[in-house]
Amino acid sequence: MLERQLLLERTDMPIVAAVEHLGGLQAQAPVPPYLALWSRLKPYGVDALSKLITDRSLVRMTLWRGTLHLISADDVHLMRTALQPELNKWARNVVPPAHRVEIDLDELARITHEYVETEPRTVAEIGAHLEAHFPEAKARELSTQAQMLVPMVQVPPRGIWGVGGVPQNVAMSTWLGRDLPASADVPALVERYLRAFGPATLADMQAWSRLTGLKAHAAALGLVEYENEDGKVLLDVPDGKIVPADTPAPARLLPAFDNVLLGHADRTRIMSEEARSRWGAVRNGVFPPTFLVDGFLRGTWNVVETRDTATLTIEPYSRTTKKDLAGVVREARAVLKVMAPTKAHVVETAG
């Protein structure tokens, strides 16, 4: 998996190709996609990614697990089309039953699309506009449902390195000049998943995509099967590269929400149960930036900036050898040159 996630050796793969290969990047906040690619590509400059967002080669939109992702414009048709039926279900259930108001979701989608197809709108604006049509419901819940039902792109300058701004959304059809196709090529999506995360079980694929009925789609692909130590069947593409288990895995810093930690139902291939319990013990599902040592999750990191200094603190989950920590420190010093190039840099270890 680490080989396919481009975490064993940085590659010179073009940015758009890398984003497509990885199945998209988590993008709830602007910075994580930049750091995810920094850990995987060489040479790599943040300005190059910003340009691809600006010229619409890459887009930020609601996707896997109902969260914001960065994907290529070409992949919108495959990925959002496949996920749309599931997003439609989530739109019905996103409001807790005790507060749920039955409204016409088809009408909500129609009104939303008309409102966001002409110009970018903030979430607050979308919610207020919908509340005027559905006064029995709350604006915040209506805007959440709208993002599930209507494919929208979060437009620049949001998502551009070093640039702030309130998030604004416009209809995907307006931004890209085309609508979603009527049906999705789900087998192609299964293959793409395996090329990024395989070998994997059907449960892994479902955990990543939240799609059901994948067994029939996988059966149409002529996949190969392996059996892991627990007797579970792992599926893979016939030409999928599998590296020896003793292949060295260099230390890597990962951004918050990196999909390598979220892309499987069985996460023991990349984290121990102890590490998982600490990593998952967060409020509101806001996962911290993490680091890998020898291919396994070993702790978290964080950067605090003052006017003149950027301090990166490494916090191992457990005792870490000096040799292992040295690789993390090297990566930490390197990432500070990207995150705070004009400031003095400090790397420290907590505990």
Score class of each variant (00 low, 15 high):
8 L>D: 00
8 L>W: 03
13 M>Y: 02
13 M>R: 15
17 A>S: 09
19 V>R: 03
25 L>K: 02
25 L>W: 03
26 Q>K: 11
27 A>L: 08
35 L>H: 04
38 W>T: 03
38 W>K: 10
51 K>E: 15
54 T>P: 00
55 D>C: 03
57 S>C: 02
62 T>W: 08
69 H>D: 12
71 I>K: 02
72 S>A: 04
76 V>P: 00
77 H>E: 13
81 T>P: 04
82 A>N: 04
85 P>R: 06
86 E>H: 12
87 L>D: 07
87 L>V: 02
90 W>I: 14
91 A>C: 03
92 R>F: 03
92 R>M: 12
92 R>V: 10
93 N>D: 14
102 E>A: 15
103 I>R: 13
109 A>R: 13
109 A>Y: 10
112 T>E: 12
120 P>E: 06
121 R>D: 10
126 I>C: 09
132 A>N: 10
136 E>A: 14
136 E>Q: 15
136 E>K: 13
144 T>P: 00
151 P>G: 12
151 P>T: 10
151 P>I: 10
153 V>T: 11
157 P>G: 14
169 N>T: 10
169 N>A: 13
170 V>L: 11
174 T>H: 14
180 L>S: 09
181 P>R: 12
184 A>I: 09
191 E>N: 05
192 R>K: 15
194 L>K: 08
197 F>Q: 13
197 F>N: 15
209 S>K: 03
209 S>A: 01
210 R>S: 03
216 A>C: 03
226 Y>Q: 13
227 E>Y: 00
236 D>I: 01
237 V>Q: 13
241 K>Y: 01
255 P>E: 11
256 A>S: 15
262 L>E: 02
264 H>N: 07
265 A>V: 04
265 A>M: 08
268 T>W: 00
269 R>K: 10
274 E>M: 14
274 E>I: 14
276 R>P: 01
286 V>N: 01
287 F>A: 05
296 F>P: 00
298 R>W: 06
302 N>M: 05
302 N>R: 11
303 V>D: 09
309 T>L: 09
312 L>Q: 09
313 T>S: 09
319 R>V: 11
332 A>V: 06
337 K>M: 07
341 P>W: 02
351 G>D: 09
